[in-house]
Design a protein around this nucleic acid. Sequence first.
DNA 1: ATCCTTTTGTGAACCGATGCACAAAGTCAC
DNA 2: GTGACTTTGTGCATCGGTTCACAAAAGGAT
Lengths: 225, 225
Amino acid sequence: MKSPSHPRDRGIPEATVARLPLYLRALHGMAERGVATVSSEDLAVAAGVNSAKLRKDLSHLGSYGTRGVGYDVEYLVYQISRELGLTQDWAVAIVGVGNLGRALAGYGGFVSRGFRIAAVFDADPEVVGDDIAGLNVEHIDELEAVIERRGVSIVVLATPAAAAQEVCDRVVAAGVTSILNFAPVVLTVPDGVDVRKVDLSIELQILAFHEQRKAGGPLMAVDSQ
Amino acid sequence: MKSPSHPRDRGIPEATVARLPLYLRALHGMAERGVATVSSEDLAVAAGVNSAKLRKDLSHLGSYGTRGVGYDVEYLVYQISRELGLTQDWAVAIVGVGNLGRALAGYGGFVSRGFRIAAVFDADPEVVGDDIAGLNVEHIDELEAVIERRGVSIVVLATPAAAAQEVCDRVVAAGVTSILNFAPVVLTVPDGVDVRKVDLSIELQILAFHEQRKAGGPLMAVDSQ
DNA sequence: ATCCTTTTGTGAACCGATGCACAAAGTCAC
DNA sequence: GTGACTTTGTGCATCGGTTCACAAAAGGAT
Ligand SMILES: NC(=O)c1ccc[n+]([C@@H]2O[C@H](COP(=O)([O-])OP(=O)(O)OC[C@H]3O[C@@H](n4cnc5c(N)ncnc54)[C@H](O)[C@@H]3O)[C@@H](O)[C@H]2O)c1
Ligand SMILES: NC(=O)c1ccc[n+]([C@@H]2O[C@H](COP(=O)([O-])OP(=O)(O)OC[C@H]3O[C@@H](n4cnc5c(N)ncnc54)[C@H](O)[C@@H]3O)[C@@H](O)[C@H]2O)c1
C-alpha cells in the first residue's frame, strides 16, 4: 500500500526534527476544530514556516499527502507522533525543586504530550518530603534507585549552576541519556548522551543585541522566531 | 591604535550573536578566578565550542587578540558586553504572573546581566496588587501606561497560550519591539519586531525523538548542546 | 639581530538547510 | 473519459555556517 523505495528513511535532518513538534501543535489545533484535511500552504501558515520547507520536512517521513488535496490531519498527527516517539509515554524526572523546578512540575503542558513527571528530587531537607503537584519530593540520595525503579529516561536539571555537573554525572551514570538543562553551565557528557539547554539569560541578551541595533543606526534587519 | 579597514563591521552573523553570551559567561568565570589572558583554545573549551569557530566569531567584533598570547580577559568582556548592548541596562516587563512568571520574576540571573525587571502584569484581580519579588503586580489595563512610564523595551510573555497574541498586539502597539515568548503559540508581529520563543515541550519532544532512535536500531548519531 | 615558539586571523573547501519553481499526480465537474 | 484545476514532492541553485589548515604576527630566548 506504500511505495517501495524509502518508506521511512533513517536520518531525518536535525532542523526538521526541531520543527515537527511545531507542526504537531498546529495539527492538534486543527483536529480540535474538526478540520479533516489541510494543505501544506495552510499548515505552513499555522506553524509560521515556508510551505516548501514544510513539504520537504514531511517528505522525510514518507509520502503522506495526496496531490490536489493535501494531508489528512488525523493521519499526519499519528505519523509525526510516531516519528517523534510520542506514541509511548516518557517518564521524566526533575532535579531541583526551587522556583523553576516547581513551575515545571506543576505544568500541564508536558503531560498532554506524553511526558509524565515520574519523580522530583532535591537536596534541601526542608523541601524533601514536600508534596509538589501531587508528587513527593525525593532526596537526591535516592536518585539512582528511583530513576531505575520508575524507568526514568529523561531528566530535567533545575539545580543551581554549581550543582549541575555533579548531578549530571550521576544521572548519566544511572543510565539516563537525555537531559534538559536549565542551569547556566556547559555540561560535559560522554558520547551518546543528548543534552539540550534552555538559557533564558542568553535569549534576553540576543534580544538586547538586536534592540540596540534598532535604536542605533537606521540600517538593520530584524524579526525571526 | 586600531587597523583602519573594518574596525567594527556591521552585520554580525546570527549564529555568532547567539554564542557571544556563552563566551561572556565563560569569561566572567575566568575574570573571577583572576585569569588575565586566555587563548582561543582554552576559551573555546570553557564555552564548549570549536576554537576556530570562536576565533572567527571574535574576529567579527574586531582584532582584539594578540598573536602568540591570546585575549585579555577584561578587555574582551568589555568588548563583547558593548557589542551585545549590555553596557546599558534594560527595563524588562513580565506579563502573566502564574507558575512560570513568578519563577522568572524571582530569578537573580537576569539582574546580574543588566536586565532589570521593571514591571509585572496580570489580569487576575486575585493576583493584582500582590508583591512578587519586591514588585507590585500591576493590572493588565495599565500595560501601555506603565510600559511608557518605565521605559520598558523588552517584554516577557508568560500568559496562557490563548491570551498571548492579544497581549503581544498590545505591547507592540505600545512600542515594544523585543519579545520573549513562553506561550506555545506562533505569534504574528509586524516587521521590525523581534520574537524569540522558548518552548519546553518542544525541547522534550526533540529529546524523545533521539531517545527513541537510541533504543530502536543500533545505528544512530547523537549528542549536541 | 636572528631564530624559535605560540597563537591569532582568515582564505577556501565543505556541509547542511532554505526556497524557488515545476513536473507529476491526484481530484472534480461535466 | 476528458480536461481544467489543485497541490504535492523534489531537483537545483543558493546561502549561511562550520572546519581545516596555514601564513602572518607577536614575544621570548640567545
Ligand atoms: N528561576 C528562573 O526563572 C530561572 C531562569 C533561568 C535559569 N534558571 C536556572 O535554573 C536553575 C534553578 O533556578 P531556581 O530559580 O529554581 O533556583 P532555586 O535556588 O530556587 O532552586 C534550586 C533548587 O535546587 C536544589 N538543589 C541544590 N543543590 C542540589 C543538588 N545537588 N541536588 C538536588 N537539588 C539541589 C536547591 O535545594 C533548590 O531547591 C538555576 O541554575 C538557575 O540559574 C532559573
Ligand atoms: N509552567 C511551566 O513550567 C511552563 C512550561 C512551558 C510553557 N509554559 C507556558 O507559559 C505560560 C504560563 O504558564 P504558567 O504555568 O505560568 O501558567 P499559569 O496559568 O500558572 O499562569 C498564567 C498567568 O497569566 C495570567 N493571565 C491570563 N490572561 C492574562 C492576560 N490577558 N493578561 C495578563 N495576564 C493574564 C493568569 O492570571 C495567570 O496568573 C503558558 O502559556 C504555558 O503554556 C509554562
